[in-house]
């Protein structure tokens, strides 16, 4: 296809030009390479198990049998992509969305605590940043704590948060969202501190010549300057908020959510189930980041920023 397009440049259709010069082709090539490596890996990793099985059944087998077998095991070490896709198709489209076997059900559980945690965390991050920028004492006292909060491994602190909150009667959505909050306030706070401090000296002096109040300075200069920084931070925040929600579902033995699905899968050696939950989580994350990106484009365009 590429050579075709190159050999007849004069008649090259517009969409082909875009395809060749755009990102589509490189992305496709990389995806294809990953797919091939994945299949090779699946055959290699599942081969021992398959050979064992053939020998126990005392059947004659060829290489073709081996390859076919490794790609259709029920509990393979590494499931093949088409097995994961089939599982996802089944659990997304072929069961009721309210069923405990539905990935839509589990996704929506995880999504609700992701979004709640994201909302609280972003708000907290913005408030902290405003405090740090507006009050010198907070700058000195708060920032070291904010940074050190992120050096604690979330996997270590998540079970404690769940247990402590559980003992005071908070169960389900709230403890999970708090773990998301814990993760996602950080990039928002750091990004917003940088953003609120981004106006240059000239822009600040201008406000001073008008004798603007602090609130006017904030509302008319600091805040609008920080908006591009805010969106860059929100994209990171929403992705790790999803990670936080999943991590929050692991230690509770939660009955629902993508984390619970991962955990149940690992209890019963259901590797295909684990992988389909994983892929679903990453698709979900990609969609959330894309959504924030869309809002970013709309907002920045409304603010007259150059694309």
């Amino acid at each position: 296809m590429t050579t075709e397009a190159l050999s007849a440049p004069a008649r090259k259709p517009a969409f082909l030009t875009r395809l060749v010069e755009g990102r589509a082709v490189p992305v496709l090539m990389v995806s294809l390479a990953i797919l091939i490596l994945w299949y090779l890996g699946a055959v290699y990793m599942n081969a021992d198990l398959q050979i064992d099985q053939f020998e126990r059944q005392k059947v004659e087998w060829t290489t073709a049998d081996l390859v076919r077998g490794t790609l259709s095991q029920e509990r393979p070490l590494l499931p093949a992509p088409h097995q994961i896709l089939a599982e996802m198709w089944k659990t997304i489209f072929e069961v009721r969305p309210t069923s405990k076997r539905s990935l839509i059900y589990h996704s929506s559980v995880t999504l609700s605590s992701t979004l709640l945690g994201f909302a609280i965390g972003s708000l907290l991050g913005i408030l902290l940043a405003v405090g740090i920028v507006e009050a010198r004492t907070l700058d000195k006292s708060l920032l070291p704590w904010i940074i050190s909060s992120q050096t604690i491994p979330i996997l270590a602190i998540a079970p404690m948060i769940i247990v402590v909150l559980g003992s005071i009667g908070l169960k389900g959505l709230v403890p999970k969202s708090i773990i998301s909050t814990y993760l996602c306030f950080f990039p928002v706070a750091i990004g917003m501190v940088k953003g609120l401090r981004s106006p240059d000296l000239l822009q600040m002096d201008l406000m001073r010549t008008y004798s603007a109040t602090r609130w006017q300075l904030f509302r008319m200069l600091r805040w609008p300057s920080a908006v591009p920084f805010l969106f860059a931070s929100l994209k990171i925040a929403i992705a790790i908020s999803l990670v936080g929600a999943i991590v929050g579902e692991l230690p509770t033995g939660a009955q629902a959510g993508l984390g619970a699905r991962l955990l149940a899968g690992s209890y019963y050696g259901q590797t295909i189930q684990i992988w389909s939950a994983l892929i679903t989580a990453s698709i979900l994350a990609a969609c959330l980041v894309a959504l924030v990106g869309l809002v970013e484009r709309i907002v920045l365009r409304a603010m007259g920023m150059r694309e």
């Binding site: 000239l202 822009q203 002096d205 201008l206 010549t209 008319m220 200069l221 609008p224 908006v227 603010m303 007259g304 920023m305 150059r306």
Partner: peptide
């Protein structure tokens, strides 16, 4: 007074 700086210092979002 009105102060006019070396650069226009217009706010890009306005």
């Amino acid at each position: 007074y009105g102060y006019i700086f070396q650069a226009a210092a217009l706010y890009p979002w306005r």
